[in-house]
Design a protein around this nucleic acid. Structure first.
Lengths: 202, 202, 202, 202
DNA sequence: TATGAATGAGTTTTCATTCAT
DNA sequence: TATGAATGAAAACTCATTCAT
């Protein structure tokens, strides 16, 4: 609602950084307080509970990263493979944005007690990616693909996204670039073939 | 080492079922003891510590599921798309095997304190899938593909696998079949195109 | 001493209302601040401490209710049973006066740390009731009763008062009227008999 | 249900002693643990929560003191004023029985969160006293009193009981004996008069 | 006068672990 | 092998109070 106070911002930032690296239960309010150089009890001057703190960070992360994704799609050149700009931006973004790390770490295996809230946010995030991707695909192959194709390539795209996301959160993951090229190749081939088929039919 | 006693088996089973649904920290030894109808302290008659218990289940799960995967590949018909039998078996297996659920839940975001042990097991698991896939691919397209192709399709296959795995552990995931068909289509197209290219070169 | 400022009055009123319904430890300054629509820290602009706030309310309550009791006795018709006007006024007063509720709630089981202060106020209150009752009784039966009778009926009256007070603070208490009539009957009988005895002696 | 273990008994005893002197919120589990010479956490080996501990003591107290009251009535001589044996036993009992102190301290102003449970127990206790009293009264004045009389003297008796109970929990209460004699006199007078009236009617 | 921020001391509760039996 | 009892360490949270602004 109202813009958060700077003090509040410091708290959610510290919390976000912890929650981005560790599971909900692995993070204690003492840790966060320590990071901030304040006492545990002081956190409650800014936040109602650990849950509320987590959810604040979640909303923030969702908002920030949905905007980032949108921007990736908006700035994508018309000639490139749909959705690839987002994919290619991921490693840098993951390294630089605590919110992205937070989002991915908590998307797949949220704390049981908060799973519905988290899932619905992440579903929302994926939904936006899906729509942006399909929109780009329509620009590229408006007449060449059926509605069913759009839908199926959308499924594939989300599959690729999850695959890349997961690769980022792997502990020692160094395969990201390889995986990206490999899946890119598949998507490219898939589209090429589909477009050719439709042309032949005509 | 020695075959576990039946009592020991009961303990690891109860633990496995809990760890398959909840994070390491969300599971308490009391819960496991309750499931077994024994007291918390009694668990220590069978197991050295919570960590040791978790690792025992991990090894068991890895062993059992590696064998299952191997079998999927062994029984795959020569004409089908390489690696697809495993993929298609996943939902049923996930529903029926606590070990599979345990493996997937803990593969991507293991408890910090055990992450190296867990990761190396999961890496091992993926490595086996990779080798089995490439071996199948060689049977199919021995001359049609380059070594670089084999490597890249391997990367893509692991990407697909992770994507499907992750779909299974989603909270409300109902997209598995759609995602599988979509990614299958991409892989198929990718191979088809690659094989055609090589033929044309010749 | 000096008449309290209106702001101060608002604070003690809010506090009084809380302390009238809950024990000292069950009331937090945050609650009171909430009721007032101010912040917890602001309370300290008006009051030195939680204890001081409680004691302020206590003094206020004692003063207000002592005056009320006095008035009950003053306006009692000469023919009625001594002290009954106060008794009969109790339920209405209890419902309408936060100070009465405060007084009764804290009279019997005050917070340990403040018990001497509270008790001495309540003792004072009872003492006034006692004197007013005996004074009324002297008007009625000046010659008919001995000093020992006066003293003993005084004890009985205080006993009746406590009984009725306690009935009011009961959770679901609906027996007040019944109890009042029953005890009234006893007091009446006691006086009647005592008066007759003295007459016979003469 | 099952007889409590001796260890359990020690815990509820220590808790009972504390709860008999201080309000629910004034008692901390640390205090109880200290009294027992064990650590705070150890209490949870015997009891589920502070609430559960309090309720265990409550049930125990109710049971023990209901039995005591029953015994007072059973051993009452037929010629004495009904219900007076219980009243006369109160001060000694109050001094000697932690359960009695617990019961009275918590009967009138229970902790808000447990008030329904507490009240229903105390109501039960009073109900038994009432029935025992009326039963004794019937033996004494079977034909001399109407049903309405029985009911009203019952109300009066409960009023007297509450008055005496409250006197016991007063901080410096030294008036017990005086109050008892005074109220006894009233009850005695009330009965005498009622019996005479009925006789005259006949 | 009011308050945002902080805090020390304290609360109840959980948990993995130990150990004598 | 099983367990009752205990415990140290830690968790989240509450609260009266302080203080600079």
């Amino acid at each position: 609602m109202h813009p958060p106070t700077p003090a509040m911002k410091r708290v959610t930032d510290a919390a976000g950084n912890r929650f981005a690296d560790l599971s909900y239960d692995e993070v204690s309010l003492s840790d966060i307080a320590n990071d901030l150089g304040i006492r545990k009890a002081s956190i409650y001057s800014h936040v109602e509970s650990k849950q509320a703190l987590f959810l604040t960070v979640l909303d923030e992360a969702f908002q920030v990263e949905a905007a980032f994704a949108q921007q990736c799609f908006d700035s994508e050149s018309a000639s490139s493979l749909p959705g690839m700009h987002y994919c290619e931006s991921l490693p840098k973004r993951y390294g630089e944005s605590m919110h992205m790390r937070f989002l991915l770490r908590n998307a797949y295996l949220p704390p049981k007690s908060l799973s519905t809230r988290v899932s619905s946010s992440y579903e929302d995030y994926l939904q936006r990616l899906l729509e942006a991707f399909i929109s780009r695909l329509r620009q590229r192959s408006a007449t060449a693909l059926t509605e069913q194709d759009f839908s199926q390539f959308g499924d594939a795209y989300l599959g690729i996204i999850d695959s890349l996301h997961v690769e980022l959160i792997y502990v020692g993951a160094q395969r990201f670039e390889h995986r990206l090229r490999a899946l890119q190749r598949l998507l490219s081939a898939g589209l090429e073939l589909a477009e050719k088929v439709r042309e032949e039919i005509k």
